Amino acid sequence: MMNMNVSMSTVSLDGLTQLYEHRLWLAFFILFLYVFVMLSDSLVVYIVCSQRSLHRPMYVFVVAVLVNSAVGSSAVYPKLVWDLVQGRRVVLVSRSACLCQAFLTATLGSSSFMLLSAMAFDRYLSICHPMYYASLMSPRTVSALLLLCWFLPALRVAGAMVLSNRLPVCYTQVTRIFCDPYTFTSMSCEGASTQINNAYGLMSATITIFLPVAFVLFSYGKVLIISLQRSRSFSSKALNTCLPHILVFMNFSVAASTELLHRRITARNVTVATSILVVVIPSVFNPVVYGLKVAEIYRHVKRLLRHPTKTQPFSE
Rank of each mutant, 00 (worst) to 15 (best):
I226A: 14
S12A: 14
Q86A: 00
R140V: 06
M1D: 09
R306F: 10
T208Q: 09
V85Y: 03
V270G: 09
T208F: 12
M114C: 01
V157G: 01
V284H: 10
S112C: 09
S257R: 12
L125W: 11
A273F: 15
D180C: 05
V6P: 04
T194C: 10
T271R: 15
L260P: 02
R95D: 07
P308T: 01
A64L: 08
A118C: 07
R268A: 15
S74F: 11
R88E: 09
G191P: 10
V35P: 11
F113Q: 03
Y298I: 03
L148N: 00
F61V: 01
L292W: 15
I207Q: 11
R166Y: 13
V63G: 02
P181Y: 11
V289G: 06
S188G: 11
Q229H: 14
A192D: 13
F210K: 00
I225K: 15
P244Y: 05
Y46C: 02
S275D: 15
S235P: 03
S53Q: 03
L167F: 13
V6T: 11
V270M: 15
L292Y: 15
C189D: 15
S40N: 11
A120V: 02
V174N: 13
S219H: 07
T194N: 14
H300F: 07
L224S: 09
R140H: 03
P244A: 09
R23Y: 07
L152T: 00
L116A: 04
